[in-house]
Simulated assay, not measured.
Amino acid sequence: MRSLQAAQSWLPIKEGLVPLQLKSLTIWDSAVIAGLMLDHVQSQFAGGPPASVFRSLQNARYPDMQHAFAIVEDEQAVGFFILKERLALPVWASDGAITIHNFSIGQQFQGNGYGRHGLILATQWCAENRPRANYMELAVNLRNAAAIRLYMSVGYVDSGRRIEGPLGELEVLTYPLYRVRTPQ
């Protein structure tokens, strides 16, 4: 299995370009995302505050198949998400998929393109580090229009599948990884 390498992208900011990176988190890295705050509604859609979601990974049934990441700018975490694969996949996931969960950008960092670039980095990471994966998938609440627009802006498409979630109906979106892989 390949190592959990970091991915990097350059985020255009008014004054120039700022490097945005993914940082793979271990169970000892809770302080990295401790400052990420969400409003109440965002927290519900994201499955809870990032720090609480991160702590729940300590009790994961398949810890080696769930990977927490911080989206980092200049050593400051601006976002968080979890990737799940193989035995850790939810029942709604397609064969050959890696699923993205609990994607969130701290409230104080929203509106700066971090979500879009974080998703691009997650996609690049999966394409480079999980060569057997064919898709990235996620489930998003139909009432979370801003998140749906964000996911679709980076190339996720509606799979046509719907599932029931704790806050209502979820739409399953998919991203074919062949779009970002270089031909071999």
Score class of each variant (00 low, 15 high):
1 M>W: 07
4 L>M: 12
8 Q>D: 06
8 Q>F: 07
13 I>Y: 13
14 K>L: 15
14 K>D: 15
16 G>E: 11
17 L>D: 12
18 V>A: 14
20 L>S: 06
20 L>M: 13
34 A>I: 04
34 A>V: 07
37 M>T: 14
43 S>D: 02
47 G>E: 06
48 G>T: 13
49 P>D: 05
50 P>Y: 08
52 S>R: 09
58 Q>H: 08
59 N>Y: 09
60 A>P: 00
61 R>D: 10
61 R>G: 09
62 Y>D: 09
63 P>L: 06
64 D>Y: 10
65 M>W: 05
67 H>Y: 10
70 A>L: 08
71 I>W: 09
73 E>H: 11
73 E>S: 15
75 E>F: 08
77 A>N: 08
78 V>Q: 09
79 G>D: 07
79 G>Y: 04
81 F>P: 02
82 I>M: 00
84 K>F: 01
85 E>Y: 03
85 E>A: 12
86 R>P: 04
86 R>Y: 08
86 R>C: 14
88 A>E: 05
88 A>F: 03
88 A>G: 07
89 L>S: 12
91 V>A: 15
92 W>C: 04
94 S>K: 11
99 T>V: 11
102 N>C: 07
103 F>D: 03
105 I>T: 05
107 Q>P: 00
108 Q>P: 02
108 Q>M: 12
112 N>K: 15
112 N>D: 11
119 L>M: 12
120 I>V: 15
124 Q>S: 07
124 Q>G: 01
126 C>E: 00
133 A>S: 15
133 A>F: 12
133 A>Y: 13
134 N>A: 14
136 M>T: 02
136 M>P: 04
136 M>A: 10
137 E>Y: 02
139 A>L: 00
141 N>P: 01
142 L>G: 09
143 R>S: 14
143 R>N: 13
147 A>D: 04
148 I>A: 04
148 I>Q: 05
152 M>C: 11
154 V>N: 05
155 G>A: 04
159 S>C: 02
159 S>Q: 01
164 E>F: 10
167 L>G: 06
171 E>D: 05
174 T>L: 05
175 Y>N: 02
176 P>C: 11
176 P>E: 08
176 P>Q: 09
178 Y>H: 07
179 R>C: 10
183 P>R: 08
